[in-house]
Each structure stands twice: as C-alpha cells, then as structure tokens.
Design a protein around this nucleic acid. Structure first.
Lengths: 152, 152
DNA sequence: CTTGACCTTCCCATGATGGGAAGCCCTATC
DNA sequence: GATAGGGCTTCCCATCATGGGAAGGTCAAG
C-alpha cells in the first residue's frame, strides 16, 4: 500500500545489505529510520534513493567518510561543484597511489615467477630473492631498483 | 658480544616493527623467541634473516598465511619449485584482480571528474551520476557499460 | 495455533597494523 | 646508592567495511 519498505526490501532494492544499512544508521551516515510499532525499520523512496547513492559511491571506492561529505553536498542546494570535485579528486589520487603500488608488486612478482623453472627441483629463484639479504625485493625504503636475480 | 639482539634491534635490522614481531610470534608465523632471565626476547642472525624474508614477502603483498606457506617451503630442502610458484601465481592473480578493480574505479572517476565544471555553480555531474537511478556507476552487478552522463 | 520467514539487538571475527597504559629491567649519571 | 630515561613486557583498544550468528520478538499463511 504505502511506499514504505522493510529493511530487507530496502536492501534488495538498493543493493546495500540489511546489515550495512543498520551499520550506516549506527555510525550516523544515514538518519535513524522510522519504525513500526513493533520496532521494524521503515524506508521510503527517498531513503532508498540515498542508499543507492551510497552503494554507487562505495562501488567507486569512496570511504564512508567521503560518502558522508558527498551526501552533505548532495543535499546542499548551494554547494559548489568544485567542492564535490575536490572530494572526488582526493579519492582519485588515493586510488592512483594504490594502483601504482599494486602494479609495482605485480611487476616484481612477474619477474620472479618468470625465472622459476616450475618443476620438481628444489631450486627456486622466488625463495632466493625473498631470502637474499642483498636484494631488497620491492623494498619501499630503497626505492624501486628492480635488481632481480634470474637464477634458474 | 653474542650475536643476539633485543626485539628493538631486531626490528631495526629487519624492518619489521617490534609490535609486529610479537604479533607474528603470537599467531605462530614465527616460533617463540628465546628469552633472557628477565623475559626479554632475543633474536639471532637466523631469526633476523627470517624477519627480513617476511618483510620482503609483505612488500610484495603476500598475506601472512601465504608467507607461512612460503616459510615452510623455504625451510624444506625437498620442496619443488613449482610449489613455490603456485603460491606466487595465486597471489599474482589476486593482485591482478585487485588492480583491475581499482583501475576501473579510476577510469570511472576520471570520466566523472572530467565532466565537472570545477566552479562555484551547484550543478555537478558527479553527484548527478551517483544519484541517478538509471545510471549504475561502476555497478559490479551490471558489468561495466560506462554510460556516463556528461551534463556540464 | 503452529511454522517459517522476517525483524530486532548484541557480540564476535576478519587482516595487518598501531596506540597507549601499567609495570618491570637495565644502564648511566649524580 | 638512588634516580632518571629508555627499552622491554603484557594487555586492551582502534582502525575499516563487512559478515556470521545467537537469542528473542513479529507477522502472515496454512
């Protein structure tokens, strides 16, 4: 009848689990939901819209803190688009840093694996690299010099 | 005199924090250290070598579980190099998946930011995208169709 | 009226790491 | 010898987003 939904329906409609909806309420990301007399939470279209917003932002990797800011800007008619851009750009920078870190791990690991004989012999350049005191595999504090042993 | 070091020295020598050395001992990644009569942990060259091994593997992004396996293979003279390769390859696959995920977030976010006027007007395509029910920003469950609005 | 599916709250776990408190130990200095 | 400091010990808590599960209340269909 009414457009009010229980938490399970809101979860299915928004893609945010019921568990997380309650969690977002507890940490104050979203306001406390209306309740039935029995204490069941109720969600209207606006709340579900907000939940979808949150899910999309999470899909883009925004932290809950960032999303709180984005929600504030979303509801602020006088917001400046550059304020939103700033949040997004900050997150983009973090994503790029993370990607660079992972890509350099991938690069290092590919080199190590390429040197592996992949057979039953015990000789293994991967372990050699990891145990070699002279060779700081991807050591962050040394910078990336990439002096990989190609033992086998 | 002896080549035994306290946990602080071992930490400085290995690049693993004292906190984490104790943690690794507690979870069984490394054996319990010798102790002085006063209860201070003592580390010899072999232990510090192991700690360096652990740090290098962590720098490559291996999980502590993976490192436990690698340590076992490292100490196993009869290991097959393909066993090591398998652990490394599994981790490499996980890294590649993570990288792909982050890169697709970066891609999506770059598109959104590129559409932003970056001024004081309230119109903002980033928020529009996040709030648009018809546009599942980077929605994992829909696959990546990338139908970004270029509103401003 | 029972059954099963839903809801509630509360606690615990993840993984790797750090912060901090309370208290013991050791060494150097006065 | 007493004291100051820095390092060591253990223990608990926090992060961050998420889920599992228990114990118990609610509701609709049979």
């Amino acid at each position: 009848m009414s457009q009010l939904h229980t938490i399970g329906e809101a979860a299915a409609d928004s893609g945010v689990s019921a568990k997380m909806i309650r969690h977002y309420e507890k940490i104050g990301l979203i306001g406390a939901a209306e309740r039935t007399e029995a204490g069941y939470r109720l969600y209207g279209p606006a709340e579900i819209h907000t939940l979808r917003f949150i899910r999309r932002a999470r899909n883009l990797g925004f932290s809950v803190d960032d999303i709180g800011e984005l929600l504030g800007l979303w509801h602020d008619e006088k917001r400046a688009s550059k304020d939103v851009r700033e949040v997004a750009a900050g997150h983009l920078g973090a994503l790029r840093a993370k990607a660079a870190e992972i890509l350099s791990m991938i690069d290092a690991l590919e080199h190590l694996i390429a040197g592996c004989t992949n057979d039953n012999r015990p000789d293994c350049p991967i372990l050699k690299d990891l145990s070699n005191d002279a060779n700081p595999a991807l050591a962050k504090e040394v910078g990336h010099k990439f002096g990989y042993q190609r033992v086998c």
